[in-house]
Write a protein that binds this DNA or RNA. Structure first.
Lengths: 416, 416
DNA sequence: AATTGTTTTTTCGAGCATTGAAAATAATGC
DNA sequence: GCATTATTTTCAATGCTCGAAAAAACAATT
């Protein structure tokens, strides 16, 4: 059930959420601008910001008197997030590394720990315990901030269960099936949320390219794995504005190449780094893929292809074909206006483009709607982190701060 | 943008909508039951129902004194829709036939016109004009009801443009590209809404099988075409509770069999009636499909397959394989808990089942989450009509009647 | 230095929809 | 006829928004 009874409480929560969203999206804004952005009246704006100020969620910015932009009239006072109002711990767990970041409510990085991840690690220590220790360490290293730690958000790879509390499958060794989210939630008495890496990549890329907010986008990660997230137009911040897929493990070829997941013929088995290398070096398709590929090796292959090496270009043609048919098939279910190719594989995008576009041209929706715009972005780390942080902070905004009971009015009245 | 400012007006609209939805879903209910169903207080329930009664949207049902179920206490008075409050005209346009139905606000069929559709029809008369004339005729035949005709809803096959006002492509000859929805809207000064047939099938099937409300479902139509609609758990009535696909035209085989849409290798080219017949009779895959197949011919083939005819069973194996791989690939983007096979092809479901399940077993999400429940339903006409009617009536509920300004209170006060 | 003009922000009263509690209503059971 | 019981309405309180008017804070002008 998504529709609930509406009352004055839900009205306040909705409108406070609207204000916090506007600040999240646009940065510091004055009350007048906030009013026009949210559509609320100036009167309500005053009431809401008074509340938020009294609860130390936002602060009035002391503007540096800008000599250039002297304007007439009462100067606008911009409101910004009170950075110390809350903190979030962000975990990014990948196959061979993890990273723990502490960010403040304003979105500034406070501290960060990088952790290499041996494949056997989670066989020797429970993932929940491992994560708990690292967060504990981060908390002792930042005692002041630890007091207002409000949320733990974790980026993972794999298939989440229906209510997003644990992984049912993961390429990260020994991680699936362990209740690490719940044990962290218990240990710190904090909300812990799991997000699929591919979805965060899509969300984060959209944050970094604001024009994508009006588009429907399929963001494809190509690198050590192949993954995809979907974002829908509008809904800059809000529940359900993006979707999650198992694109990399969509079947490309019945009984085809062996994938790291154990199935055969997945797109990943042709288009990921190990897939392309396997094709280029004529390793049999049924050979078990190595757990990870040295980046150097992958880069070398791209270089070779760029200089015209036949077996290398062939491998990227095969990869492009797999991605292209995957996208063509996906478009029967979700047809985005934009397709982004992100990650290490983006470097080889021009090598794959002809096959991708040829496969797309064979899809009815493409003939009818035209080819989507296809763009490559190299970096995936920044958008993933950004996506994770924005998710976490937005959760604090909406689930915690927007829902806080009104305080200032009551206090002022009883005092006066 | 889906998030708006909330005020007392949106609160009222939301809660009135909640009440109307409850009546739509459960049928006539007393105020007390409505209160517990919606979560609203008894006090609000009184206020809202008084409004709805004053506006003649609902009526108190005069119960037949049921001698069996004598209960103590003040008897509950159930509220039901006022059937004459509004009417909707429903058009179902298919490749070789159309049907126009007039239904009242309570969901009762008032009148119906069946129309055969010659393939050349819309080349000789503009679709908008044709539809306008038929609705006009229906209105003259039902003059009383015509006065409160509030909405026209149309079921179509094909690809809708982004804002759902016209078809960009359709298997129905000469229909795509004509602004028939807008010209109807202008002619009658009424809201006209277009719905994809596959989506209505999914929605309607869910209405007829209430247990599916808690499931995510892929409803696949197999017959003269192959189509699919998606429904998501919860959200019995509400915006965006279902999705639309071009499943039938998802590529199954690169450079494969010729499809009616003109592309090659679509699932439909293997699994629709013409596809199966083509395979069974060893007609070359590149032969242009006939515009339509006599149902008798398709039924005969199913019969032959059921009695073990080799070329017939082979054709259904090929069809099952196409559907199975299509579903397997779809599940990388949307993995439902239930898959329904609906339409004439449902009769051959058991013939296709082994290939469908084999293909699904090759999908990672199926290995992780288990196979979805796959069920076949024969009839597609009833769910499509039901889906269309419920969409139209729900639109009237939410967009028109829930948004009506409060009347009773103001009137009573000024009178008293 | 005082006044005027401009823009931002706050205050104030009205309006509306919700809610819990209490009262009224309408039937059955004894 | 009266007690019991379940449904429905009434009533006063609460909390939110909004429009209009007032206040505040500055720049420009005289």
């Amino acid at each position: 059930m998504t529709r609930f009874v509406s009352d004055s409480d839900s009205v306040r929560r909705q409108n406070r959420g609207l204000v916090l969203s506007a600040l999240r999206v646009h940065g510091p804004l004055s009350r007048t601008v906030l009013a026009s952005q949210t559509g609320l009246s100036h009167a309500s704006m005053t009431a809401i910001t008074q509340d938020l100020l009294a609860q130390h969620i936002v602060t009035e910015l002391a503007e540096t008197p800008n000599s250039d932009a002297k304007t007439r009239g009462r100067p606008a006072v911009r409101m910004g997030f009170n950075r110390t109002a809350a903190y979030a711990a962000l975990f990014e767990i990948e196959v061979s590394r993890a990273r723990l970041s502490l960010v403040d409510y304003g979105g500034t990085l406070v501290d960060r720990i990088d952790l290499p991840l041996a494949p056997t690690l989670f066989a020797t220590i429970a993932p929940g315990e491992f994560l708990r220790e690292r967060i504990e360490y981060l908390r002792t290293r930042n005692p002041v901030e630890a007091k207002t730690l409000r949320r733990i958000a974790i980026s993972v790879q794999g298939i989440l269960d229906r209510d997003g509390r644990s992984l049912k499958w993961s390429p990260i060794a020994h991680l699936a099936g362990t209740p690490f989210a719940d044990s962290l939630a218990d240990a710190f008495d904090l909300p812990v949320t799991l997000y699929k890496r591919g979805r965060l990549l899509a969300e984060g890329t959209r944050w970094l390219n604001p024009e994508l907010h009006d588009a429907s986008v399929a963001t494809v990660f190509v690198g050590s794995t192949v993954a995809m997230g979907m974002t829908f137009p509008g809904e800059i911040l809000g529940r359900g504005s993006e979707g999650t897929t198992e694109f990399g493990h969509m079947n490309h070829m019945p009984n085809g190449a062996l994938c790291r997941c154990g199935m055969r013929g997945c797109i990943e088995a042709y288009a990921s780094d190990y897939g392309v290398l396997r094709t280029a070096y004529s390793v049999p398709e049924t050979t078990t893929p190595a757990p990870s590929v040295p980046p150097q090796q992958y880069d070398d292959l791209i270089q070779r292809a760029e200089t015209g090496d036949r077996s290398a270009t062939h491998a990227f043609n095969i990869a492009g074909r797999a991605i292209g048919f995957g996208l063509s098939r996906m478009m029967a279910v979700f047809d985005p206006s934009h397709i982004l190719i992100v990650g290490p594989g983006a470097r080889s995008f021009e090598l794959m483009r002809p096959e991708i576009e040829a496969a797309l041209a064979g899809a009815l929706v493409c003939r009818v709607n035209g080819l989507p715009a296809i763009v490559a972005y190299r970096d995936e780390k920044e958008p993933i982190f950004r996506g994770l942080m924005m998710k976490a902070l937005n959760e604090i905004d909406q689930a915690e701060f927007a829902a806080l009971p009104t305080s200032s009015r009551g206090i002022e009245r009883s005092a006066g």
